[in-house]
Each structure stands twice: as structure tokens, then as C-alpha cells.
Design a protein around this nucleic acid. Sequence first.
RNA 1: GGCGGGGUAGCUCAGUGGUAGAGCAGGGGACUCAUAAGCCCUUGGUCGCCGGUUCGAAUCCGGCCCCCGCUACCA
Length: 575
Amino acid sequence: MADTPVAARRRYYLTTAIAYANSAPGLHTLYEVIGADAIARWHRMRGDETRFLTGTDEHSVNIAMKAAERGMTPRAFVDEQVALFQRAEDLLGISPDRFIRTTDPDHVRSAQEMVRRAHANGDIYQGHYEGYYCPNEGFKAPSDLVEDAAGVRCPNHPDVPLQWLTEENWFFRLSAYQERLLRHYEEHPDWVQPEYRRNEMLGFIRGGLEDFSISRAGATWGIPFPIRADGSSAQLPDGSWDPAAGTIYVWYDALINYITGVGFPDDPAMFATWWPADLHVIGKDIARFHTIFWPAMLWSAGLEAPRRVWIHGWLHLQGERMSKSRGNFLDPVAMVDALGSDGARYVTLREVAFDRDADVSWDTFLRRYNADLANDFGNLVNRTVAMVNRYLGGQRPDPSPAGPTGGAMGPDTDDDAATLERTPGSALLSTAWAFTVLDYATKMEGCLLHEAIASLFGFVGEANRYVDAEQPWVLAREAQAGAAEAATRLRGVLGDLVEACRLVGLAAAPFMPQSAPRVLAQLGIDYPYGADGNGGPPLEELLAWGAGPRGGRVAEASPLFPRLELDAETAAVAR
RNA sequence: GGCGGGGUAGCUCAGUGGUAGAGCAGGGGACUCAUAAGCCCUUGGUCGCCGGUUCGAAUCCGGCCCCCGCUACCA
């Protein structure tokens, strides 16, 4: 199959938030990356020219302090932390097209250029800031502090001494963008999702916007602020930066990664290709910065706002928000050890609703793994391949023709229940698939990953029921005794089951990229996509009933997802 | 406090006027291709509380209780 010219392909650029590089990541941090990776793979397999960006946020007073505690330079410290992230991402099969670090040289140039543009546009000004500063949380309002015998302290970090800072800092004129933001929300009603998050952000904007500070005079571990108080360039003759100009603070550093990652400002052609981003996947804690600050910052620089921001919730463990500092978190590396890379990805995205907070536990993860992957899908593949070997000598049978509504692009009616009831046994699976694949695609496009999986596995259940309804072992006995009709029907039933396995294996590939080729290999079918989901024909073509190759042989059956013993595994990993 | 969303089976949730549902977990059964998996049947709920509208309310209205989200500058 010839490659579709890039120009004719849709391009899709998506990002995750960059992670704060101060410790090994927990599942609650990687969860977002796993979800975004599934979306990225979905687009690659569909044939979209896809770019997926993840990375780490490495500047801050807090990082510098942590490094100092360890007797390390900040750079050495973050290098060490970032390696932990990359190791965890590798184990989970995350496939970024670039892993960006805010310490990358091009990102430094990018952030500085954004500051220059805001300055040139008259959107930043020098202001005075004075107040308590918590190294872990930033500036704190007096109402947010507690005072006791030991003095004034941050309620969330009582052991960390507060600093009193008096600084001349640069401020961004966010207040000037209120009207434009409201208009943007009105003209692009789907740009912030889920909808209830959009409404929250809208309410915030309507409440009035204040300017925010974008520089720190005292902090040294950060991107040099490129402009002096008098407006002149802070760059010195030797190319270094005047320390007196301070450093860029948080959002004019971290958020900028999204445009650095597609060539800003060094590669205008690349930037023109990829910007604006199609999707930012972020957590609810930073929603405001992405859906209010960020578009205003971009507009100030003469750039477009991203097309969509998806806001997911938090993971809860034992009733509390999962977090490293609380000590209640799951270790993704341990999950991969126990469930495999795909198993860990699957249970995470199946058990956690992508549009809200979710309670998880190691126990429910294990149950889900056994129920869905070992018992339902893994066993379906296993019993199908075993029967083809046993009854048909390993010759892979073809699927029956698609049923009444089983066209490639899904059903042409929405009266699904009635259609299914009227469908004769031979067309049941193809018809059920037509509805499934349509629903699956809709859920994927809507970022409802957990519902997309549920849709797919509803079809797996359909296939398992089909086995018991048709009883291929009975047909095989009859065929053995010379019944030609039984032999024909046996081939048809097993052909449909092979097809069901092929379709589910392919459709589930964004979630289980390592297992998909193994599924098809057992069916004796080549897997046409690369390790990151690129290459191969558009997924929709392969997801049509009957689109697989004809003839050929299946391989030996071998369990794809070994069943786990609940008690033993729970004892090993639960905390 | 303000605005918004919820309280339905042991767990996670669907269900917005017409005899209470799904998945998982629990119990039983028939089968045997299969990872003792799958399939069938089944236990289980005064649908947060009180009142109202209606022939009829989980579903509409009023009141109350409880939970959660947002309510500014964390990296």
C-alpha cells in the first residue's frame, strides 16, 4: 500500500503537561501520559501525521533547594530525576516524538522570545511584589497561612521555612485579555473539555482577571529573563545574561514547551506545520493556566491558541488523592512488573474515567486484568486459535460475509438493539462489530478512553457468547462423522472468531501496543504498524469486517495474558 | 458564602414519568474448544430524607441532610 502523501494527511499534535522533575513518578503522574499515548497511537494508526510531546519541568527554587540538600548542582539533580521518568515511560511503552526538557537550549530561546514578544506588544510591565513565599508553593496570601508559636508557616508545608520576598518583578497584563477570552470561549465552545471544566473556567474569567508575575529577581535556577528593567536586552557582550535581570517565572517557562516542541522560534516552517496544537492533555490542577493564561500569552505573541484542552481528574487511593508526599501512590514500575506493560496501561485506562476523579486500588486493577485480559480477551484468542489448530489443521478459515449493517464504516441505522435481535447467528458478530467500531471511534475522538475500552470489550463478550452458542466442538464431531454442512458451518464460525480476534487486537493496539502484534501473530497475520503505531494502512480500513488477509495458517496457541493469583500479587505490591 | 455537579445492588456506575439495570464481586447449574477460563441461571437495592404534583416519580416541584468540583498567580 502506497504511503499517503503527507500533505493529504491530517496532522495531529498533542501534548501532556510536563512533569515536575523532583522524584520518581507515581501512577498518578504517568496516568496522563499513558492516556495521551493511547490517543497519539490512535491517530498514528489512523494515518494522521502525528506529533506527541511529553517531558519534564525542571526549573524552580524548590528544585534548586532539593539539589543543594543532596549536595548536587541543579542540573545534575534534574538529570538524575529525568532519567527516572524516561525509564518509567519506556517501561510503559510511551512513544513521544520528543521528550522535551525545560533545560533544553532551544526551549530557553523559545521562552525568552515569548517574553520579548510580550514586551514588544506592551503586555508586560515592572511591578512590585512583596509577601510570604513558600518554596514549595510560591507566594502565599496572608489568609492562606497559619501562625503559631513557631511563627508564620505554610499550612501545607509546616516544616519548610517561609521566605519574605520583596521584589521588582515583571507582570503580564492578563487583565487586558478578558474580553477576547470570553469571545474565544463563545466561538469555540468545545475548546475546553469536559464541559463542566469549561464552565468553571468561564466563571473564573467572568469574575475578572488580574495580571500575574512572570519573573523572579532572586531565583537563579531558571531561564534568564532577557530584558532589563529599562527595557534593554539583558544579554551581555559574551553572550551570557545579566543576572540582575532575574529569571523567567513558571508559566512563561513551563507552558512555552508546547511551542518549543514544534520548532518555535528556530524553525518557522516546522512551527507553521504543527501549531496550533490539536490537544493538550492536562490535570485539573493546572486547568486555569492552560485555558486562560496560555491563550492570552500566545495572543500577545501573535500566535494562535491551541484547539482543544482536555482536563482529566485525579486518582484516589484509599479515599485520598494519590500523591507522592502523602505516600499513598502506586508505583508504575511495580505495576509493569506484575501486569506487563500493556496490562498496566490497560487496567489504568479502563479503571480510571478520563473525565473525572477516580478511586483505584491494586485489587481492582488485578481483578480487571484477570476478568478482561486473561479470562475474556486472552482466553478468546487462545480458544479460537486452539480450535483452528485442532479442528482445521491450523488452516485459517475466512470470516463470513458482513451482515446487514456490517459495512466498513459502521451501521447505517441507530436502531441497534432491534437490528441485533433480528440478526441471524451467522451475521451476529459482523453486525455487532459494526456498532462497536463506530462507538469505539466516537469515544476515542471524545477522549472518553475508558468508555472506548468498554465498548470494545462488550464485543469480546459477544464473541465469547458466540462460541458457546455455536459449539464448534459439536460441529467438529459432526464434520468428523461426515456431515458436510457441519464442516462448512464450523469453518464459518471459526472464521468469524478469528476475525473477531483480529479486529479487537488491532482496535486495542493504542492501549496495548505490544500485545497487538502478538495477537495477530497467533492468528498468522502480519502486523503492519511500527512500534510507535506509524506506518501501515489507515486503521479504519483494517477495522472493516473481512479486511484481513485470506488463507494462511494460525500459529500455536499460547496465553497472551497469564492469569494472576489475586492474593499473592496483592501481597507483593499492595501497600 | 457564591456558582456548579452528585447521593441507585458489596464495589464502579448507567438509567430523567409507566412494573428497578450493567460490569465486577458472591451463590448455583449445564458443557468442555480454552489461561478450572467461557456460557446459562441466581442472591442482593424502602433509587439520601421529608413533603407535593400525577392514574403513576429514581425520574418533575419544594424543603432538608451529606459528598465533591471551581472560587488566581504551586514546578
